[in-house]
């Protein structure tokens, strides 16, 4: 059994597959199926593809047009409902519109009036949760599955390769990682958590046997204005960037769950976030703004 690697780009991110296979043919079949599956999910859930289901729903926001959601989308919506509830409204898949006023390529602070106007278009609780008659009730409202779908895709691929008989493999979708079993000798995959300021320099190493690992951090996108750092992690209730941790990585059986826990931890701010993630019982690593690392991973 040999280790095969493949890198490709999907959902706007660099992705890597590492599978132990009996033959190159087996790897190629699995790899091609994974690439196809990524394309399927992207075509359905991307905000940037005009024909995607999400784009169609977003375009019809505020109109009377109703959508019938397929089972997968409907259960993702249910998942988002739980995430919204468990985070007391902080995890909100309608909060993507805040990025229209907080433009990190063009650093400037929006007016409170702009923020308030945008907040009117946010609110998961406003959605009619009906599978056969779904719509966004307010014009300008948008669904953004960006905080769920890449993590979900990592789980889907890891689950899929397990079903085609690959027992040792790793799926890495730009840091959203899911393992379908450890190396064949039983040793875990070693995952490095990058230093927020020095890419490629790990601040912590995590041994991953199985399950999902996801990270959230403000180092990828943020700007500094008048000596104050504005993170791209924006609180959907206040409309302002969160002054919180620099980064957090969480392990859970499913990468989608790890990702949601990491996002909620970031949204809660440093002190409350650290307390909350510790209370969930999930293993995690936090990095604060002074790059101090706290790890609750065993081994």
């Amino acid at each position: 059994m040999d280790l095969f690697d493949f890198q490709f780009k999907a959902m706007g991110s660099p992705c890597a597959l590492s599978f132990y296979c009996d033959s190159e043919q087996q790897f190629n079949q699995a790899k091609n199926a994974c690439v196809e599956e990524m394309a399927r999910l992207e075509a359905k859930y991307s905000r940037y593809q005009p024909d995607s289901l999400i784009s169609k729903i977003n375009k019809a926001a505020g109109s009377e047009q109703l959508f019938e959601l397929d089972t997968e989308t409907w259960i993702l919506m249910q998942y988002a409902t739980i995430a919204h509830r468990e985070s007391n409204g902080l995890f909100d898949i309608t909060s993507g519109v805040l990025h229209q006023i907080w433009d990190f390529k063009n650093p400037q602070i929006p007016s409170q009036e702009d923020i308030n106007r945008t907040l009117d278009k946010i609110g998961f609780a406003k959605l009619p949760m009906e599978q056969t008659a779904f719509r966004l009730p307010v014009a300008g409202m948008e669904l953004d599955f960006g905080g769920i779908v890449k993590e979900y895709a990592a789980d889907v691929l890891a689950n899929f390769i397990g079903e085609v008989g690959i027992r040792h493999g790793l799926v890495d979708l730009a840091g959203d990682i899911a393992a379908a079993g450890p190396h064949p000798d039983g040793k875990p995959w070693e995952i490095g958590i990058s230093h927020p300021a020095i890419p490629g320099e790990p601040v912590a190493k995590i041994a991953l046997h199985s399950g999902g690992l996801a990270s959230s951090g403000d180092y990828a996108r943020c700007f500094v204005l008048n000596d104050k750092k504005y993170s791209h992690i924006i609180n959907p209730i206040t409309g302002w960037p969160v002054d919180g941790l620099s980064g957090v990585s969480v392990w859970a059986e499913q990468c989608i769950v790890a990702g949601t826990l990491a996002t909620i931890t970031m949204l809660k701010g440093e002190e409350e976030g650290k307390k909350w993630i510790a209370e969930t019982g999930a293993p995690y690593v936090t990095i604060d703004q002074h790059f101090r690392v706290e790890s609750q991973f065993k081994g």
Partner: peptide, 13 residues
């Protein structure tokens, strides 16, 4: 709660 909800996702079963 999240793990239970995720376990319902068809592609993860």
């Amino acid at each position: 709660a999240l793990s239970t909800a995720a376990a319902c996702l068809p592609a993860l079963q």
